[in-house]
Design a protein around this nucleic acid. Sequence first.
DNA 1: AGGTTCCTTTGCAGCGCTGCAAAGGACTAT
DNA 2: ATAGTCCTTTGCAGCGCTGCAAAGGAACCT
Lengths: 341, 341
Amino acid sequence: MRESTLRDVADLAGVSPRTVSNVVNGYARVTETTRAKVERAIAELGYRPNVLARNLATGRSGQIVVVVPYLDTPYFAELLQAVIPAARKAGYNVLIDQTDGDREHEAELIGRGSRRFLFDGMILSPLGLSQADLSIRDPALPLVVLGERTSDGTFDHVGIDDVAASTEAVGHLIAIGGRRIAAIGDQPYPTGEAAQLRTRGFRAAHAAAGLPVDESLIISTTRFNRVDGATAMAALLDRADPPDAVFCYSDLVASGAIHTALQRGLRVPEDIAVIGYDDIEDGRYGRPTISTISPDKKAIAQLAVERLILRIGSAKPVPGIELRAPHRLLPRQSTLGATAE
Amino acid sequence: MRESTLRDVADLAGVSPRTVSNVVNGYARVTETTRAKVERAIAELGYRPNVLARNLATGRSGQIVVVVPYLDTPYFAELLQAVIPAARKAGYNVLIDQTDGDREHEAELIGRGSRRFLFDGMILSPLGLSQADLSIRDPALPLVVLGERTSDGTFDHVGIDDVAASTEAVGHLIAIGGRRIAAIGDQPYPTGEAAQLRTRGFRAAHAAAGLPVDESLIISTTRFNRVDGATAMAALLDRADPPDAVFCYSDLVASGAIHTALQRGLRVPEDIAVIGYDDIEDGRYGRPTISTISPDKKAIAQLAVERLILRIGSAKPVPGIELRAPHRLLPRQSTLGATAE
DNA sequence: AGGTTCCTTTGCAGCGCTGCAAAGGACTAT
DNA sequence: ATAGTCCTTTGCAGCGCTGCAAAGGAACCT
């Protein structure tokens, strides 16, 4: 049985196809009588609008794409969990892409490929692309960037204040008695802006407390995974003068670091305190629970979607701005000890 | 500047639009000369095919939707991670939906809604829908179901052999000396088929070893989360006769259960051995590392996508079949002790 | 009553592509 | 040279909807 169309409904209801369209879209003023007739016909035929045809006619796909490096990284999974309902509520479907942090893949997505027609806008969490790379994108693509790049004025950027958050995290380590504090996760190269902001906060907190920074305690990692944390922690503990506290640039790193410390028979936080970043669910269930910086993921998602939709809807170029979502310091057992939650 | 169209390319190359289409799609036989001319024109104009128009003309969207209950559950995140590349390779884009396990939401998706036009087929991991509910779907929707439902002959089903896997898991607990074995995660109601298969394996392993099943050691939970495992474990340990081993129906449950046991000062596995299910990444990094059943997620994704595409491409109804992906028992520290990896 | 105004409904054209089937051309066989 | 064959290229129509602007009608005013 053929799918019924707008024209079928129009014929049955005795009105023009355009009027049916008006009813379906809640457009314009349609009299109650007409509306009722049309709705009856729709119900009778089991009509549903063909989105594909609508897309062609309007030149819009009604979809946005969210691009993240990894889907199975809890932080991104939790973020997506927040983005999808926000977009859905605004009438958009969400396409998801993962790039594995691959620069080429990311570049292709922001370039002018054929897939461009499939989405009206993009929320991008770049990893392989440097700040400079972002400027080579298709200028007609409405774009909101998440994470730690900064806007160049042609797209929006949503993130938390990483420097402030990192300063708070390290300040907390100092407050609970940390004196030789390590940092795990620095990335001193162009695509590592995210990490570098955290390192800046690390230094700021030391400065604020009048503590010197031992540069050798700042450990670089290429990624933010458990294994990176585990490896870095092992190196730190092999030193003659190991740290008494560690600021990890993600909760996964913290989880790996704690794992190593415990394996070596150290107590966390008594022998070495650890704080992470991201507030992923895991951190609330490990042993010890992981102190962390909690970015407000719902706020990030909401801001990103709102702003993107505004950008999509606007005929003239919208100036790119920086949007800040709130964050909180969440001290847990890995800094406060077993008495904490 | 207007986006250039097939017609623009045709004019520039001095051929008909249809020929350009043939070149773009690699269709039919096109002579080298013609192809070269067209390709030069395409490059010169920066032409890219309008997918929206193609969708309308072909009646296909080139998208499949993957529906999971939760995106931030590691198992599903890892599964999606495998599905997306598999679909992409086959030329399909992936839409993702999360249902929160809500029956209504799931029912809406398999019904005949307007979104139907957006995808050519669906890979569904149902949670709220019972086996019976599945049969009320839009019969024209190509569907592949993941998890523990069974095919009713109108759709395909991909999963591992849960009964066998569970039997192996519990067999392993018995092999390492477990005698009073608990199960956490049973769901003795219609939507709990998944859980019930595992319970069946639990019984089968006991039978095979000639051990009696203590029914009171089979704990039901509504979900498969850490908190469920933690709560159930607490109840088990409060008993006068606690178990010496636990089969958890997911790694998250296992993680929660281990957390509780450790908090009470018990050693895992010396005092109580624990095995999980799913082989999520977390399980490899906790302390102890979690023994588990590892479903071959790549195989599941591959089978599901292949089969769905076959179903989409076929004019006549394809009989629904059961497809089995392999699984492995992965013993780790939570059953073998600290000497294991 | 005639003219205006305002609101509802309509008709037309076209979004850019592909399916279909036929036209055109080159080549082979008789 | 003519007919037949085969391969490449083309023209047409239409996928189902919406933007635009105008037509049609009712209500209101003078």
